[in-house]
């Protein structure tokens, strides 16, 4: 069978690890994998790659990496393009709807708003001081209330009178939720109230002073939550579009960017799906050569350092032109 020509996008995030394969010609999604990172990005990535590799016979033309562990993903899979999440999300959304003007994105650990005009990012903001109102918080509350996160949205939709919950900070939101529970409010009302509070918090912090114009795209893991979709629609009094692959938009964007990179005549550095068979190890230590006390992280593949980072002065950095014996020995 002729191998399927595809572009690979990897989004190694704090909560989820997403991999997508896009058709080499049409850029249609042919395969996607959504895994929980569970604090172990290396395991998640190797698992995902192994699954992809087994699924079919692929000819990978280019690879893009994004997400908070994009650097790690880059050295592990040999990414051609390593881009920040904001750019990746914007690229993916405008691929989906060319005329998109506002992107609301709520992920595991951060939330962002991206404004585009005529297909160009003109402004963006990320949550700054507090992580209130991100996916992790919803996760945490769902498990506290003993409901699966997947059912969260549906239950919230049943609410008739959402309660008002203080949403400024997760700690206060939680105490307020408990308070409302103790007063006897029903679960749907509390969940719907939580969604409204999160949306209010998002619009007041991340979206402060931003001109939110339609078409609006809502993406990121939290977009799965129907309660949140409804709360956004109500707060903005505008239609909010959730793309089909809302949960892997970062990876999708990275794959598209890798196509642009290859189209400029560059060679791919993809290391192959066999990378999943290697063993990876990380070691870390605190360098005490100066008072900065940098935490140095060493990524080892099959007993050989492939990346060492974390130092401010850069003395451990592995450069491409280095020979094996020149690579610093880090214990």
């Amino acid at each position: 069978m002729k191998p399927h020509r595809v572009y690979l996008g990897v989004d190694l995030g704090s909560v989820s690890t997403n991999l997508v394969l896009l058709d080499g010609d049409t850029l249609k999604l042919v395969k996607k994998i959504y895994l929980r990172t569970q604090g172990q990005p290396i395991t998640a990535l190797t698992q995902g790659m192994a699954q992809l590799g087994k699924a079919s016979n692929w000819d990978v033309l280019g690879v893009g990496a994004t997400g908070s562990a994009r650097q790690l993903a880059e050295v592990m899979v040999g990414a051609d393009v390593t881009k920040n999440e904001i750019t990746a999300h914007a690229v993916a959304a405008s691929h989906e709807i060319a005329v998109v003007r506002t992107i609301l994105e709520i992920g595991g650990q951060d939330s962002k708003i991206i404004l585009l005009r005529d297909g160009v990012v003109t402004d963006f903001a990320m949550n700054t001081v507090c992580a209130a109102g991100t996916g992790s918080f919803l996760d945490q509350q769902a498990s506290r209330l003993n409901i699966p996160i997947e059912d969260f949205g549906e239950i919230a939709l049943k609410s008739g009178h959402p309660v008002r919950i203080a949403g400024r900070c997760t700690v206060f939101a939680e105490s307020d939720m408990i308070h409302k529970q103790q007063l006897g409010h029903g679960l749907p009302d509390i969940l719907a109230g939580l969604c409204t509070a999160m949306v209010r918090n998002y619009l007041n912090n991340v979206g402060k002073g931003k001109e939110i114009a339609d078409p609006i795209v809502f993406q990121g893991g939290v977009a799965a939550n129907q309660g949140m979709r409804k709360a956004f629609k109500e707060a903005l009094s505008m239609d909010v579009h959730v793309p089909e692959h809302f949960d892997v938009m970062g990876a999708l964007g990275a794959a598209i960017l890798s196509k642009e990179f290859i189209a400029r005549g560059n060679q791919s550095h993809f290391l192959g799906f066999s990378m999943a068979e290697s063993t990876y190890q990380t070691t870390s230590f605190e360098c005490e050569d100066c008072p900065n006390h940098c935490e140095i992280i060493n990524i080892i593949k099959d007993g050989r350092s492939i990346a060492i980072w974390g130092s401010r002065c850069g003395k451990f950095a592995i450069k491409q032109e280095m020979k094996l014996e020149d690579i610093p020995v880090v214990v």
């Binding site: 920040n84 750019t87 160009v120 990012v121």
Partner: peptide, 25 residues
């Protein structure tokens, strides 16, 4: 004192990307 390096870098990179795409446009 709580500023995280990763978030800082992400914002700068994204801002530079934004300007680059602006310029091209």
């Amino acid at each position: 004192e709580h500023t995280g390096e990763a978030g800082f870098q992400t914002r700068i990179e994204a801002f530079v990307d934004l300007l680059e795409r602006n310029c091209k446009e």
